[in-house]
Simulated scan of single mutants.
Amino acid sequence: MERVRIAILGSSVPSFELADALIAAGCDVCAIVPPRGTLGGGVQRRAAARGLLVVDVGPSINDPATIAKLRALDAELFVNWGHPERFAADVLALPRLGVLNLHPGEIPGARGLEPVFAAILEGWPAVIQTAHLMSAAFDDGPIIRTRRIAIDDAPYRDVVEERLRDGAVGFYQSAVLDVLAGERGTPGAGPRRYFGKLKPDDDVLRWHEPREAVLRRLRALSPFNPGRSFVAGHSGPLLIWRAEASDAAAKAPAGRVIAAGDDELLVAAADGLVRITAYQLPPALPSEKLIGAELTSDQPR
């Protein structure tokens, strides 16, 4: 294996664990480059404990002064874990072996910031975590290594994120070692899809949709964000964190609240009932007043 200088572009605990794993494998990790706004005492202490230089990116990793700092590292491989900025061509051109990136989706079929949301919302059986060499196109470039994370058991988003973290350090270390061994990757195949930042109404539950679509949207959001619904006459939203399909036989128009209590609500979707088990009512609206009300995706004005 070629011994080259590596800079880790990240500040999270896993990025330091990756540095440890690479150092243990005989790699020359020379610096930690935290994303803008994350250079705190914890990062500095963790870097100092490992004898690693910390590079402050200032206002942007693409700032000319920052690029000069990165060039001075004389690193031959950058390994990115968590920088939110799109890297300029001048940054990508600095290391001889390129910039390796870890993406929580398949390339090119699940590019962008929210492939996990899309995967749960659309009912994919798995997400494909991808280690790839970065190119000028966002979340694109030659693929070094992938791994399949099953999500066909209807998990909530926090569970999917945990599955992506579990084993990620070892997976990413293997991708780095692949590059050091001469692997240059292959282009991804298939349709190109991009899932950008969530839109303002992506968290609104659509009760006119099939029950499973309602539940998938909620699972794609919760627990980091609740699903929202609105009740006529109340400006505040009904916030929903947990729900499940109900076997109750009652029939009602989509959005109608069939039953309400302190612990759960029963609401009709297009093709069945949903039992809401964790929620927050709008201000000044007791749960018993919800019975017979209709939930809507349109906020009252």
Rank of each mutant, 00 (worst) to 15 (best):
L102M: 14
N101S: 05
A137C: 11
A119R: 02
M134E: 05
A118P: 01
G123A: 00
L94A: 09
D90W: 03
H132A: 03
V79Q: 08
L92Q: 09
G98I: 01
A136V: 15
L121Y: 08
L73C: 10
L113S: 15
G105F: 01
E122S: 05
E114H: 13
L70G: 12
A126N: 10
I107M: 11
D74G: 14
V116M: 11
P125R: 13
R111P: 08
W81Q: 10
L113Y: 15
A75E: 13
E106C: 06
E85M: 08
G112Y: 07
Q129D: 09
D90F: 09
L100M: 03
E106G: 10
A75I: 10
P108W: 06
A88E: 12
V127C: 07
D140H: 15
E76H: 05
L113G: 12
A72H: 13
D74I: 02
V79S: 13
G82W: 14
R71G: 14
W124E: 02
L94F: 11
V99L: 00
V79A: 11
A88H: 15
E114P: 06
A88P: 05
V91D: 07
I144F: 09
R86Y: 15
G98Q: 03
V79P: 07
P142K: 10
A118E: 09
N80Y: 08
F138A: 12
K69P: 08
S135Q: 15
D74F: 11
G109L: 04
F138W: 13
E85G: 13
V127R: 09
V91T: 11
L73Y: 11
R71V: 08
P104I: 02
N101F: 01
L92S: 12
P95C: 06
L70T: 07
W81L: 15
I120E: 00
L102F: 13
A118D: 07
A131D: 01
F117L: 07
I144K: 01
V91P: 08
A93F: 14
V99E: 00
E106Y: 10
E114W: 11
L133I: 01
A93Y: 14
D140K: 11
G109M: 04
G141C: 10
L94H: 09
D74W: 08
I128F: 14
I120C: 02
I143Y: 10
A136C: 14
L77H: 04
L102C: 08
I143A: 10
V116E: 03
G105V: 01
R86H: 15
V116W: 09
F117M: 05
T130M: 05
V79I: 13
L133V: 00
R71F: 10
P142E: 06
L92A: 13
P84C: 14
P104A: 07
E76D: 04
W124T: 00
R86V: 13
R71I: 07
A93T: 10
P142H: 09
G98L: 04
A136P: 10
L133M: 05
H83Y: 11
K69H: 14
R111Q: 06
L121D: 02
L94M: 10
F117E: 06
I107C: 08
A75P: 05
G98F: 03
A126T: 00
H132D: 01
I120T: 01
G109W: 05
P104G: 11
E85H: 12
N80A: 14
K69S: 15
S135F: 14
H83P: 05
L133Q: 02
F78V: 06
G123V: 00
